[in-house]
Amino acid sequence: MKEVTDFYQQQGADFFIRANNSAVLIQTAGQQTDWKPCTINYQEYEITSFDYQLGQYTHRIIAYRQANKTGQASLLSNDSKKYLFIITNDKQISEKQAIELYNKRGDSERVFDIQNNDFNWNSMPHSFLHQNTVYLIIMAVAHIIYKWIVAFFADIVNGITKTSRLKKFIFRFVNTVAKFTRSGRREITHLATDNQKLIDFLNSE
């Protein structure tokens, strides 16, 4: 990596590159005392930055971490957190802005992955380009509507978050047995769930 960072530094170009986890980076990050809480894409992180010598130049490491899923502590960092690193030569940008800027690349790839697998972009239904173009646009609009719906129900349905994929949403919400009855001139929805917030919402005026 040092050849790449040296080249861009000599060219006077700003860069943001994912730095692989190493014992030195994890130990150095674990010793930092100025970690700050930060919310990025609905996820909670702690962020910090520090100088790091790589190749001929001293660059800046943007470090961010969150609790790992296993809860197992690392011997390198002495905590149970997952560490991620970005190396950059931009000394002015904030840690959060640097992470969000770098994540735009991954966000674009993630959008195509969701469209292909959740909204059927990988299976065109027609034989003509103009018809398939309309289909792609409609499914993109469906994705936008879905994001609004899942953000709304994330506070009501257990197990659903604002970043839940369509399959999880269907499993948690759509595949719920329901029975409709009439009582006092109004429709009553009975659900096979103990989620009272969802029952109250569906039966509200």
Results as ranks from 00 to 15, higher is better:
residue 173 F to D: 00
residue 78 N to H: 11
residue 72 Q to M: 06
residue 167 K to Y: 01
residue 180 F to H: 05
residue 48 T to I: 02
residue 135 Y to Q: 01
residue 86 I to M: 05
residue 45 Y to D: 10
residue 116 N to V: 00
residue 181 T to I: 07
residue 5 T to G: 11
residue 176 T to P: 01
residue 178 A to M: 05
residue 97 Q to V: 02
residue 168 K to P: 01
residue 134 V to N: 02
residue 137 I to A: 05
residue 145 I to C: 01
residue 14 D to N: 08
residue 60 R to P: 10
residue 28 T to D: 01
residue 8 Y to G: 05
residue 29 A to Y: 08
residue 132 N to H: 06
residue 12 G to A: 00
residue 8 Y to P: 02
residue 146 Y to D: 01
residue 121 W to F: 15
residue 169 F to E: 01
residue 45 Y to C: 08
residue 14 D to V: 10
residue 56 Q to C: 04
residue 198 L to I: 11
residue 64 Y to F: 15
residue 105 R to K: 07
residue 183 S to E: 15
residue 53 Q to L: 08
residue 66 Q to R: 15
residue 46 E to N: 09
residue 25 L to V: 06
residue 38 C to V: 10
residue 100 E to T: 12
residue 147 K to T: 10
residue 183 S to F: 11
residue 149 I to Y: 01
residue 154 A to G: 09
residue 33 T to C: 11
residue 161 T to E: 08
residue 72 Q to L: 14
residue 133 T to H: 05
residue 86 I to E: 04
residue 20 N to Q: 10
residue 183 S to L: 09
residue 72 Q to W: 01
residue 59 H to T: 03
residue 107 D to A: 14
residue 148 W to V: 06
residue 110 R to P: 00
residue 199 I to W: 00
residue 106 G to E: 13
residue 55 G to I: 07
residue 123 S to W: 08
residue 9 Q to E: 09
residue 80 S to K: 15
residue 60 R to K: 15
residue 100 E to D: 11
residue 160 I to R: 08
residue 24 V to A: 07
residue 21 N to Q: 12
residue 19 A to R: 13
residue 107 D to C: 04
residue 138 I to W: 01
residue 100 E to H: 03
residue 1 M to H: 14
residue 38 C to H: 02
residue 157 V to K: 11
residue 112 F to I: 10
residue 98 A to P: 14
residue 121 W to S: 13
residue 50 F to P: 03
residue 1 M to S: 12
residue 94 S to T: 15
residue 185 R to V: 02
residue 47 I to S: 09
residue 34 D to M: 06
residue 72 Q to V: 15
residue 199 I to D: 07
residue 7 F to D: 03
residue 116 N to Y: 07
residue 153 F to G: 00
residue 199 I to S: 07
residue 55 G to D: 00
residue 91 K to L: 05
residue 105 R to N: 10
residue 90 D to S: 10
residue 85 F to Q: 07
residue 105 R to T: 09
residue 94 S to R: 07
residue 109 E to S: 13
residue 9 Q to V: 00
residue 203 N to T: 06
residue 54 L to A: 11
residue 105 R to L: 04
residue 56 Q to K: 15
residue 168 K to F: 03
residue 121 W to I: 04
residue 131 Q to H: 12
